Deep mutational scan, measured.
Amino acid sequence: MDPFVVLVLCLSCLLLLSIWRQSSGRGKLPPGPTPLPVIGNILQIDIKDVSKSLTNLSKIYGPVFTLYFGLERMVVLHGYEVVKEALIDLGEEFSGRGHFPLAERANRGFGIVFSNGKRWKEIRRFSLMTLRNFGMGKRSIEDRVQEEARCLVEELRKTKASPCDPTFILGCAPCNVICSIIFQKRFDYKDQQFLNLMEKLNENIRIVSTPWIQICNNFPTIIDYFPGTHNKLLKNLAFMESDILEKVKEHQESMDINNPRDFIDCFLIKMEKEKQNQQSEFTIENLVITAADLLGAGTETTSTTLRYALLLLLKHPEVTAKVQEEIERVIGRNRSPCMQDRGHMPYTDAVVHEVQRYIDLIPTSLPHAVTCDVKFRNYLIPKGTTILTSLTSVLHDNKEFPNPEMFDPRHFLDEGGNFKKSNYFMPFSAGKRICVGEGLARMELFLFLTFILQNFNLKSLIDPKDLDTTPVVNGFASVPPFYQLCFIPV
């Protein structure tokens, strides 16, 4: 058959498939802009700032609406009420993970971030239990974070109060905490193996944040037939998995079943207990991918939040002064901060919360999916439909947070200066898919920041009023603009 005829037939089939998918069930789905064949609503979305586009569309179609990214149908949730109703009140029905062709290629359905069903539930339950087990290797997770915080302070001392970009050092600290939990080992910041790991993690975040990856996920045929950065992403992930597998083999040879040292040991012990169960989800494949998931999810998000926190503290020296006064009063100079201190430091706690609220790190979270046909607000959402959640619409709700575009710790303080919780605080998402490392991340943010401010004054290279804190939105995360500062020993 003539190649031209084959091409026309293929394009015609794709067009018909697109029209059929977009028209099927439209009477039951939430409203939304009319999609174009094949490309859907992509032309109506700013790929570099999806969150802003969703906010604009919500003003037209309401808090629940339908979009098509290519052939992929998505239902968008915008605003606290619908997000709570879906992710919390109907948590089980909305607990699936959205379709990610690239991740599915890399992870093969294993791990904790992109798995679904029984596998996801069992691996998540085990990971939560293990991360909360403060007795691994007779050292609590808090001990590990405190140790890394001391190392971080010593690295900052080496800058000798000269101007520096904190990106690298602030990236090393949370990565080392995860390494300590998974591998029972922290690395020197100049260790070549550690630097290679950091390089792969950072490069992957840069790649994932590009519009090209959005295109690959919406048109998965590209993955096999086109060159691009997605190939580098898959190569980096394969490198990390190979490295983790080597460490798993080392653990198998040296493990003491009665004295687990780290996450890998705990997983291997669980595998041993379930070795007679042919349906067990505790396999080497799941261990390797879960460890890679924890490394990827637990490094860049925390380091970016820390980097943004220091920029905001530079911009608002009056806030920094209040935090340091609270540190001096509650902790002093002669001991290290600990998590028990947080309950006695409402202002510092409010500042950490406000940093996370203000920066809105992951504006749309990772997409969910419905696990069955769901009736939601008089609409029928078919099983498997991807759910896109606007966390921006919750964290920047102007009824809950007056002047949401302003950095103001009073958003989390009552009139008496006591810490005030808010149900709208969802930087880790909400419901059954809430970030498994939430507790660890909150511990790291509090301890790293208090250790830094206990030991250093922060000095800006320019007038604080002239510092730009506008986030650089890159399609996946909101990151701070480049800046330098000086760490002046107190």
Rank of each mutant, 00 (worst) to 15 (best):
S390G: 02
V5R: 06
E93K: 08
F448P: 04
L36D: 02
G40I: 00
Y68K: 12
Q484V: 06
L453H: 04
D46C: 07
P317E: 09
F100N: 15
E85S: 08
N398A: 12
N133D: 13
F65W: 05
I327A: 03
L447V: 10
D143E: 10
E415N: 12
T299V: 12
T210P: 04
D349M: 10
H368K: 08
E154D: 12
P211W: 13
Q484F: 05
G137A: 12
Q279L: 14
D373W: 01
K432C: 10
A350F: 02
K459P: 02
P337L: 03
I215N: 05
I284D: 04
G437T: 03
K399D: 14
G109V: 04
N116L: 03
T210C: 14
I387D: 00
P35R: 12
L7G: 11
I289L: 12
P464V: 11
G98W: 10
V479T: 14
V351I: 05
W20V: 13
D165F: 02
Y189N: 05
N41E: 01
T66V: 07
P367Y: 05
I45H: 05
S422G: 03
D293A: 04
A309K: 00
D188L: 08
L445C: 03
K190Y: 10
K235N: 09
M240Q: 05
P404N: 07
E142H: 07
L54Q: 01
T159R: 06
S58H: 12
I269W: 06
G417V: 06
R132H: 12
L306C: 04
H396T: 08
T301W: 07
V352A: 07
I45V: 07
G439F: 09
D397I: 02
R333F: 12
T210N: 14
C10M: 15
A350W: 02
K421F: 11
I462E: 15
A350K: 01
Q279R: 10
V319P: 03
F69H: 08
L314N: 05
K459T: 08
L54R: 02
M255Q: 06
Y61I: 00
H396Q: 07
R186V: 04
P30T: 01
D373N: 09
E281Q: 10
I215P: 04
W120G: 04
P166C: 05
